[in-house]
Design a protein around this nucleic acid. Structure first.
Length: 924
RNA sequence: GGGUGGUUAGCUCAGCUGGUAGAGCGUCGCCCUUACAAGGCGAAUGUCGGGGGUUCGAGUCCCUCACCACCCACCA
């Protein structure tokens, strides 16, 4: 084996070999296990959040594959309608062109071109992360197959009356010029104004005051509303208002929507530009006057002097004119929220347009029931509430988008405006008996990206065809995703899956936290705190990192600050850590239900772990020589051999349990602790007395070598799902020595706890050995004795069992505790002045003569005594409490008594030692 | 307005059904002991956000307050 662990060198060739051999494809003979990847935006790159989720999905996939399950991790990408279209439009802008300079077909061709060009980035990243997805099944939401599923779903829903077209208010993005769904609206708090406007009564008998945050929309007012029970205004209901500026007459109406306690209690009603007003308008059959163009400038419905003004310009102008006319009563500061598009950041307008909607209630009901009945389980469970809360208040889903990139809506119109929905134009003509003489025009709109995403778990498996994959892998086993898309995606997959497959799309949903930077900030390009997972794997120098973070910013003025922060945080750039270290970090940090502050220190720690593992393998390699030297013939298993097997089994138990509950942090901890603190720190050290002893028998050496090989081999299998690369590399060297001849660790069986039975005796004996060694080490450290110095040791109060153990395990003690001699003090004999360590009744003595600083020992003992007294006092108090003794379970009380006795023994013993050492001190 | 999560060692976080406060990183000693200095051995470190309650016993259960996140819905 290479002397130095070099992840970069290993990782690439290993992945290439896995992929070339087709080992990622489902092959197991066990139960089906499937995960559908949350498809990333095809033209994007994977960020830390993806890397995190992919690590968990790959860990699950590899684990189940090794368990023999018929395992599929389904890969693919999403066309990400708006996001992708925006990127390509920006590219056009950079060339001095606009989207509309191109025909629709030309533009779409251009997007496809960009998709082909950049689509490889994600798959390259996934390969570097070690993702064992079945590349042969790679899918894209705009593939022919998936597009067919989209059309099929649309048509079926339409035919059932679950999709309809309607003219109503939608959230309109005046920059992107498209409708968006409720979910794509982000409310942003702003310090705005509340303008109080005087609206004169038409009969000249006075005025009412209305308050508004949107004065410009007053040009579209078609009523003023008051609360029906509001005594102040009851006499005015039914009268007319002379709407200023517009110079129209509008009625005063009564509607319980009005809150009489807010403002003046009078509300201007603008049905075409406010969701609440729209409802009021419907109830009172008010006219709707749309005063905006699609770009949110004033249209021809307003007096000529306002026409063409942008909405914010118009606002100023309206206020100015009202003020000049004495109609502005007052202006108050007012905190309120404005709706913004999550993509464009533009202030959205409620806008009256024709759109396609999915009637959601009939789809939501089964999706709610499925979770109530536990057919799909959220992990952590508290996300269930979030899901219910949204699903129970869900509103119809606007699915049409006025974009060019996406699945075009399969609807056609004739010249009379009749709409026909079908799988394609011939289908529509056939179904509705439309001859060639009838001109049909296809709907210009495309579907919301999430419409196709909602079908992902079955569309990727071949639906609407009844494929064998679909039968086998649907429902999928688990969905791993972030809470931010529970509504966008998880809920919609539930609805569509239940509707079209008659079953839930996944049995479990594991919701991960968000990856944040080390300060807890969300990682974003504009904050300049993004880290590319590949840069952690391969490392990156400072200049390249700065360049990466400051280029392509939407707001270039942020560049200097970002550069400064980056230089401060990574003065040396980022050193390479390797994929396995990054993956292990993600697993270790994956505690449930909260976000993760990502800390590079942590990755460095796990890189050291990889290094430790590597060196352990080197030790084994050096200890074994070649296969021949392990050889055949009688083999004798040492106590340590039995012990490590037993410990391995206990560790596997923990891993199995933790994995069932998606506690990847526990999985990582169990593996880490076993590997470092048991296998490396103790087992490997315990093999040395045998392997390096010329007097040890061949059988003993053979037994140890075999165990060494077997346990290292099995450990690679246990670690492989989290750390695929280093384990493959080590496994391929050690497997033949352990009698395994498979081509790759990834297809070997995952070790089980049953194979490594609990060995009570071995655990007990090694525990004794370990405590003995620790005791001597404490003395050594307390006395500042060099590890190289061999010590004479005397046992006091040794039971026959202690004597037997000391004799039997003498080789371990000599080597690991560094013993020179080991003597038993006969009972009744006086002990020499010595440093002490206690093991229950047994006292380990290291005579002070010439070796030890008596003063240091006194200090050490005094400290120990103080500590023991403290503990003893606590147990005294507890046991003196009658209520405790009477009420606590017997086991707890007994345990407390035992502790008290133990502390008492320790204390007595320590005090005796102290007195003895003091005497020595006095003599000198 | 409704809801969720959080507040534990200098930092980042675990602590299951109440029963001796843990890990990693960092810190402090001593060691280049032929797998590993990216290491070994040893050590220190906490009024578990505040207050109250239940209990023999509370980091853990209940109430309350404070602060920090986040989600949903919003009265112009």
């Amino acid at each position: 084996m290479e002397k130095v662990y070099a992840p970069h060198e290993i990782e690439r060739r290993i992945y290439e070999r896995w992929e070339r051999n087709g080992w990622f494809a489902p092959r197991g003979t066990g139960a089906p296990y499937a995960i559908a990847i949350p498809p990333p935006n095809v033209t994007g790159t994977l960020h830390m959040g993806h890397a995190f989720q992919h690590t968990l999905m790959d860990t699950l996939t590899r684990y189940h594959r090794m368990r023999g399950d018929d395992t599929l991790w389904q890969p693919g990408t999403d066309h990400a309608g708006i996001a992708t279209q925006m990127v390509v439009e920006r590219q056009l802008n950079a060339e001095g062109k606009k989207r509309t300079d191109l025909s629709r077909d030309e533009f779409v061709a251009r997007v496809w071109q960009w998709k082909e060009q950049s689509g490889g980035t994600i798959s390259a990243q996934m390969r570097r992360l070690g993702d064992s997805v079945d590349w042969s099944r790679d899918r894209f939401t705009m593939d022919a197959g998936l597009s067919r599923a989209v059309v099929e779903v649309f048509v079926r829903l339409y035919e059932e009356g679950l999709i309809y077209r309607g003219k109503r208010l939608v959230n309109w993005d005046p920059v992107l010029l498209t409708a968006v769904s409720d979910l794509e609206v982000e409310q942003e708090e702003v310090e705005g104004n509340l303008w109080h406007l005087r609206y004169p009564l038409a009969d000249g008998s006075g005025h009412v005051v209305v308050a508004t945050t949107r004065p410009e929309t007053m040009l579209g007012d078609t009523a003023v509303a008051v609360h029906p029970d509001d005594e102040r205004y009851r006499h005015l209901v039914g009268k007319q208002i002379r709407l200023p500026l517009a110079e129209r007459e509008i009625p005063i109406i009564a509607d319980s929507y009005v809150d009489a306690t807010f403002g003046s209690g009078c509300v201007k009603i603008t049905p075409a530009h406010d969701f609440n007003d729209y409802e009021v308008g419907q109830r009172h059959a008010l006219p709707m006057i749309n005063v905006f163009t699609p770009r949110a400038a004033m249209n021809d419905e307003v007096p000529p002097r306002f026409r063409g003004l942008d909405r914010f310009e118009a606002r100023k102008r309206v206020i100015a004119e009202l003020e000049a006319a004495g109609l502005l009563e007052k202006v108050e500061k007012h905190k309120h929220s404005v709706p913004k598009g999550d993509r464009s950041g533009a202030v959205l307008e409620p806008y009256l347009t024709d759109q396609w909607y999915v009637k959601i209630a009939p789809l939501a009901a089964p999706a709610i029931a499925a979770v109530e009945e536990g057919r799909t389980r959220f992990v952590p469970e508290n996300w269930t509430n979030t899901y219910f809360q949204w699903m129970r208040n869900i509103r119809d889903w606007c699915v049409s988008r006025q974009l060019w990139w996406g699945h075009r809506i399969p609807a056609w119109y004739d010249d009379a405006g009749n709409v026909y929905v079908g799988r394609d134009e011939p289908d529509v003509r056939a179904k509705h008996g439309l001859g060639a003489e009838v001109a049909l025009r296809r709907d210009e709109d495309v579907l919301d990206t999430w419409f196709s995403s909602a079908l992902w778990p079955f569309s990727t498996l071949g639906w609407p065809d009844k494929t064998p994959e679909l039968a086998k892998f649907y429902p999928t086993s688990v969905l791993v995703t972030g809470f931010d898309i529970i509504f966008f995606w998880v809920a919609r997959m539930m609805m569509m899956g239940l509707k079209f497959m008659g079953d839930v799309p996944f049995r479990e949903v594991y919701i991960t936290g968000l990856i944040r930077d080390e300060h807890g900030e969300k990682m974003s390009k504009s904050k300049g705190n993004v880290i590319d997972p590949l840069d952690i794997i391969d490392g990156i120098d400072l200049e390249a990192l700065v360049a990466k973070r400051t280029s392509g910013l939407m707001q270039p003025q942020l560049a200097p600050q970002i550069e400064k922060n980056t230089r401060k945080q990574f003065p040396e750039g980022i050193p390479p850590h390797g994929t396995d270290a990054l993956r292990f970090t993600f697993a270790a940090l994956a505690a449930p239900s909260h976000d993760i502050r990502f800390d590079l220190q942590r990755v460095a720690g796990y890189r050291n772990f990889c290094n430790k593992l590597w060196n352990a393998a080197r030790f084994v390699s050096l200890s074994l020589g070649d296969a021949a030297s392990i050889g055949t013939g009688p083999a004798e298993r040492s106590l340590a051999d039995r012990w490590i097997r037993s410990r391995f089994g206990r560790m596997l138990e923990q891993v199995e349990n933790a994995l069932r509950e998606y506690r990847f942090d526990y999985v990582a901890a169990a593996l880490y602790e076993y590997t470092w603190y048991e296998f490396c720190d103790w087992y490997l050290e315990l093999t040395k007395p045998i392997l390096q002893d010329e007097n040890a028998s061949d059988a003993a050496k053979r037994g140890t070598r075999q165990t060494l090989a077997h346990m290292l081999e099995a450990l690679q299998r246990a670690l492989h799902p989290i750390m695929p690369f280093i384990t493959e590399e080590i496994w391929r060297f050690v497997a033949p020595l352990a009698g395994r001849n498979g081509p790759t660790v990834m297809l070997e069986p995952y070790p089980t706890a049953q194979e490594f039975a609990f060995d009570a005796e071995a655990e007990r004996e090694i525990e004794w050995v370990r405590n003995f060694i620790l005791g001597v080490r404490q003395i050594r450290s307390g006395m500042d004795i060099a590890p190289s110095k061999k010590l004479p040791v005397i046992l006091q109060n040794a039971s026959p069992e202690d004597v037997a153990r000391a004799t039997q395990h003498r080789a371990y003690l000599d080597r690991l505790a560094g013993l020179e001699t080991l003597d038993i003090l006969p009972s009744g004999a006086t002990a020499p002045e010595a440093a002490t360590a206690l093991m229950g009744e047994l006292t380990i003595l290291v005579p002070l003569a010439g070796l030890i600083d008596a003063k240091a020992e006194v200090e050490r003992l005094e400290k120990l005594i103080a500590k023991t007294r403290d503990e003893l006092r606590k147990t005294h108090t507890k046991l003196a409490n009658e209520k405790f003794v009477n009420n606590a379970p017997k086991a707890v009380v007994d345990q407390e008594r035992e502790r008290q006795a133990e502390f008492q023994r320790t204390l007595t013993s320590l005090e005796t030692q102290l007195a003895r050492v003091r005497r020595l001190l006095d003599r000198t």
